[in-house]
Design a protein around this nucleic acid. Structure first.
Lengths: 217, 217, 217, 217
DNA sequence: GATGAATGAGTTTTCATTCAT
DNA sequence: TATGAATGAAAACTCATTCAT
């Protein structure tokens, strides 16, 4: 079943495929799973409703597919920055990764909103499974980085790897959340961080982490 | 209109009122606004569907009422801890408040889930208005604390009050989010922080804030 | 059952009774039977919903009662004009009655609207019964007039009484309908007859009837 | 929007379309706008509730569509008789039109009941707009007839066209109302005019109008 | 392989009527 | 006797899913 639909969808013209994927991400990011409407989606796209169900079988499986696609985008970006920054000192590397994260969120805001929706919207079918995928990806990525760094002697070796990964992961996640959600001005509303301020925040943020984790002579 | 429904609901027996409020909080916390079902709610409660609409007039007004009630609970708790900790040094006071926050979330998990839903669930009727209320409450509360502390000479006076409030607010909010959401074990799922570890985390967390904000000799 | 509710309602203070009757007429005239709302009615009046049902037992019986009351009002007025015009020639008498009809509609517009609703709104419970009452009243009234007139030798005696009554009834009814409904200006909307024009129309109208019915030398 | 639903509905099989239209006319004629029930309608028809809303979007739009359809039927019939009677003297022509009207009401009684409901049922959404359409149609139709007749020298030229149109319109309308509503036998109920009596009434009716409007040598 | 009309269980909301106080 | 809170059937409307073409 899963195979056949994969095949089906993958056989349609590339541009149609991509339009469908991005429109779906938009729809789910804007409305969450339940409130997203297949009607609205196909109207936007100008394709037949039946086609969606031929490709994916159900709304749920469309969502899973779309989510996997989004994860793939993130992974590719992270792999890219990992390879480019291979030779940097760890905490500078971390800073680069944070920048890339911010950058990605700016380029694909709906993907990040989709992720946040997932986290806080309980009771939709594949929630646990999809979250597990995200966590796994994130853990694998950070674990490889941290192992690398410990072997180079940059990180205190009295901390176990899982803890450091957990700590970094929380910090990065929180920072992005703060960046997208919590920039508010007391009482009056939403607050948009200007570029230079953001730069300062990233520096400060990473320096705090460095103080906590790095080996000090 | 709002008054009359307020009165109507407030006149029914206290235990029924509370059952209704808590079941409503549960329903909204679990499903968000749109996906929450009045059918399900009244079935759970064993009361007539019409009653809900007699009390509140609409799903939207029920939601607003429930949300205001939740804010009142939080406010009362915060007022309590503020008065009790009046004489403490500021950063110890902050620690107490954080403990109270964690405590509250543990006692009323659905209220916190409701708040997170609100933040990340776009496109529902009263979102902006309700968020503004939360922000206002939080800002007023922290501002009074910070003013107090500055006048006692505990906080660097080269920072303006609004910035400090914003910073603290973000930190506290993120900490609670991390506490409720991000305690995960790589790969396997959700992870519940044991009490002593949590204690350590709170201490560490506040000490970092202290390093950043306090006056050093 | 019917007796007991009559008694109940008739025992309450007169002014309350009349306020209730008039508000009910208004409500039914404006919305028809089904669309009329007991909720709205009691809100207007500031009395308890239960009272309505204690007095009348059901919406249907309230409607019947209200309608009977309206008929009583009409009857009283018609009796009055009949007695006053006893000595007039028949067609002048007719003219007076028409004027009284117009006058009544102007004073109690909602009663006439109630009557029109009744006629054209099928499928409500007591329609046939209530219409029969109206027709009976109207027939009795006109029959006595026509008999009187025939015996005075004013009306052609080659016509049977029932036909003359039917003819007069239709004409009067239609004239009032035309007066309330059909005064429209081709294409643009509703048209309000000025007093003097109306006077002319009444004269003309009755003269046509006279030409048709009266004995010509 | 209106177009798309129009198209949608017009694309379904003709017999289904007509069953749906006639059942809808019945439903609205019997119950008026508010009291008409889509549930009852689809049960009668044996089609899905959702289909109605796919075709028309809302009860209101269904009503408007049905009403427009009814007007179209009337218009076609009136156009037909106008062309056929082109050469007749005006008052004979009028008589033909009246006959056609009576005929139409007999063939489509629910359409006429629908029209009467519209006139006397206040407070429903499209009332004014739809009534305007009817008035406009009727005025245009009669105006062209009257102009034609004046130019042939059949009607007194001391009356302005709008007045004659108004007069004729009222008369025809009232006659049909009398035909459908007022044929009642004192006390016993509804009364169906036998064909020959009706014939006499039409003749008489038109002769009265003729006396009033025609040029007498 | 693609389409989109048809479906019906689901939603929120209204309101005449009942009945304990 | 008067009250008004509680009820639940019925309303209009939505939308994921199916299936004949």
């Amino acid at each position: 079943m899963e195979d056949s639909s994969y095949n089906l969808f993958n056989r349609i013209p590339k541009d149609k495929r991509e339009r469908l994927l991005h429109a779906s991400i938009e729809e789910f990011a804007e409305h969450g799973f339940h409130q997203a409407s297949i009607n609205r989606l196909v109207n936007r796209l100008g394709i037949a409703k039946g086609s969606i169900f031929r490709y994916f079988g159900s709304k749920e499986r469309l969502f899973a597919f779309v989510f996997d696609y989004a994860i793939e985008l993130v992974k590719a970006r992270l792999r890219g920055i990992r390879d480019i920054t291979k030779e940097m000192p760890f905490f500078q590397r971390l800073k680069s990764i944070l920048w890339v994260g911010i950058n990605f969120v700016e380029q694909h805001p709906s993907i990040y909103r989709l992720y946040l929706k997932m986290i806080f919207q309980e009771n939709f079918p594949l929630r646990d499974e999809l979250l597990r995928k995200v966590h796994l990806m994130s853990a694998e990525y950070l674990t490889s980085l941290v192992r690398d760094s410990i072997s180079k002697g940059e990180i205190r070796n009295d901390l176990d790897v899982d803890f450091v990964v957990f700590f970094l992961n929380s910090m990065l996640d929180r920072f992005l959340q703060a960046y997208t959600v919590a920039f508010w001005d007391a009482g009056t509303g939403i607050y948009k961080a200007p570029q230079e301020e953001l730069l300062r925040k990233v520096d400060h943020f990473v320096s705090v982490i460095e103080k906590g984790l790095a080996i000090h002579e």
